[in-house]
Write a protein that binds this DNA or RNA. Structure first.
Lengths: 141, 141
DNA sequence: ATAGGGCTTCCAGTTACTGGAAGCTCAAGA
DNA sequence: TCTTGAGCTTCCAGTAACTGGAAGCCCTAT
């Protein structure tokens, strides 16, 4: 198989496949004309990589997972460790984004979004203490 | 103010402040000895940047927001547009991570994580169709 | 023979910093 | 006064994971 066909069948663009070869994730053979010659096992590996990347594993994690996959004497605990660590990282990322989202959506809601220049989003970024929603009448004595 | 004090007061490391100057986000003056000489307004800008970055705005968004902040004739709608677009990007990111998280946590739960080599995580990555939870007895005739 | 599409390599750019090296400046202490 | 150390300067390189583009070879069809 040439790179084009492998790209199509694995869903990974040719550029990326070449990159994966560069960093040693796949080692296709070469035909006489210098073209990469992929076997089914290469295709299989690339599909594996595609799915692992789609789950957000880093390239180094992918390298580890691929190694475990090919290691008959692996222990499933090793795989689970990698996956659990990644899961924890994802959870952290989600929490971080969620917190940004909360603040930001609050700010967006509080902004008139009209032709006037005053904007609570900018005020917040500028560190002006939020005047809450200023009461028309004071509540304090 | 020298860079160290500004770093401390803004919470942005010196390296990053120099970088922000490189890309034109701040333009501190210079003292006779070649040291950067920051004024209060520079500090203010850096704090603004720090907060915007903490909300996940890209550097280019920060540049835009800073421009709007300094533009007396801005319309709050412009600010709101930037913020809403960013909010949408965050939502997309969260959805993507959440979907990864769902798949991954399912896989992790289904893996024994012991000394044996068989592992549903690897099976999934390898594209083997999940044998669901294989029934001990067939249900089909 | 030539046109095109596919393949090759290599270089550069992306994002937002961060680390490190070499070297200048300044304030304090022996 | 000299030295020491902290703080400042610039410049270069590296990070993650690709992606775009240029220059050029290969193969097939007309």
């Amino acid at each position: 198989m040439n790179i084009g066909e492998v790209a199509e069948r694995s869903g990974i663009p040719p550029k990326t496949i070449r990159y994966y070869e560069d960093i040693g994730l796949v080692r296709p053979q070469r035909s006489g004309n210098g073209y990469r010659a992929f076997r089914e096992t290469d295709l299989h590996k690339l599909a594996f990589l595609g799915r692992a990347r789609a789950l957000g594993f880093s390239i180094e994690d992918c390298r580890t997972l691929l190694g475990l996959y090919e290691d008959e004497s692996r222990e499933s605990a090793q795989v689970k460790d990698v996956a659990e660590e990644h899961l924890a990282a994802i959870d952290e990322k989600i929490a971080q984004l969620q917190s940004m989202r909360d603040t930001l959506s609050h700010l967006v809601r509080s902004c008139h979004g009209d032709q006037r220049p005053d904007c609570p989003i900018l005020s917040d970024l500028a560190g002006e203490v939020a005047p809450e929603d200023v009461q028309p009448f004071g509540l304090d004595p």
